[in-house]
Amino acid sequence: MDFAVPLAESTALLADQHQLVAINDALIEQYLGEDWAFVYRNREYLFWGLIVTIALTLTSILLGFLAGFPAGVIETYGSGYVHSFVRKFGVLLRGTPILVIMLFTYFALPLEPVYNAVQAGVNAFEVVLGPTPFTGPDVPDAFIAATIALGFRSAAYQSQIFRGALQSIDDGQMEAARSIGMSRLEAIRHVIMPQALRRSVPGFQNEFTIVLKDTSIAFAIGLGELLRRSQDLFLQQTTAVLEVIIFISLIYFVLTFTTNRMLDALSTHFAIPGESS
C-alpha cells in the first residue's frame, strides 16, 4: 500500500492550518492589537481550563444532588438525631464562606483514599477515551477537594430547594397513598418525589448557575480551571490583563446563558400539567 499520497495530503493540510492561524493572528493584531492576538494564540490553553471548569461544575452539582436530595427528605419527613444532625450541618455549610470550606477540604481532610479511588477511575477513563485535563500528579487532589467543597456546599442549598418542593405537595396525597396500602416510604418514592423533583427544577437551575460561577474559587487551591489559567496568561503579558478578563467573562456568560436556556427547556418539558412553569 502506498502511504506517500495520504502523508503528503496530511502534511499539506497541517501546513494550511498553520498558515490560517498565522493569518488570523496577524489580522487580530492589526485590527484589535497585540494583546488580543496574544489571547488568540493562547486559546487552546484557555480551552482546557474551560473543560476543567465544566467538569468541576458537573461533578459538584451531581455530588450536591446525591447528598442534597436525601437531606431534603430527612429534613421534611425525618425526626430525632438524624434530622437534627442534617439540619445543623446544613446550617453550618450555608453559613461558612465557600473559600473557607475549600481551603479546609484541601489542607485538612484526609483525601488519600478518595484520591486513590478517583485516580483509578480516571485511569480507566483515559484507557478508553484517551488523555484528560486531569492527567498529572498534582491536579487530581485539587480537583477532588474542589468537588467535595463545592458539592457539599451545593448540597446544603439543594436540600432546601428539595425540602420546599416536598412541603409544597398537599398532605392529602400522602394520606391517599397510605389509604391504598402504600407504606410511608413507598408514598414518598412513588407519589411525592416525582412531583417534588418537577417543582424543584427552577430552584435547581439557579443553584446550577451559582455552582458554575463558584468553580472560579478553586483558583485558590491551584486547580487549573479557567480563572487560574487566565492569571497564568496575564502574568506572562501584563498589558493583556483587561483583554484576558473580558474574554473569560464572555466565556462564563455564554456558559451560564446556555445552561439557563437548557434548564428552562427542561423545566417546561417536565412541568406538571395545569401548573404554571
Rank of each mutant, 00 (worst) to 15 (best):
L58Q: 10
I101S: 14
I61G: 06
D141P: 01
V191C: 10
E175C: 13
A120G: 10
I148L: 09
F152L: 14
V73G: 10
V191K: 12
D264C: 05
T105H: 01
Q231P: 03
D25A: 09
I272G: 07
H18D: 15
A120I: 00
I54T: 13
I180W: 09
G80M: 07
T209Y: 13
R198H: 01
R178K: 09
F85L: 12
G222P: 02
I272H: 01
Y106D: 02
Q173L: 04
L129C: 04
R87K: 11
A22D: 10
L197F: 15
P140D: 09
Q30N: 13
S84Y: 15
V128M: 11
K213Y: 04
L63A: 10
S84R: 15
A124H: 03
A37E: 14
F253T: 11
R189E: 07
W48L: 03
V5R: 03
E207L: 08
L109C: 02
P6V: 00
A218P: 08
L63I: 13
V100W: 00
F270C: 13
R228Y: 05
E29P: 04
V114W: 03
A146C: 11
R189W: 13
Y106F: 09
A15W: 15
A156D: 04
V5F: 05
F125R: 09
V191S: 14
V21D: 11
T256H: 00
A37F: 15
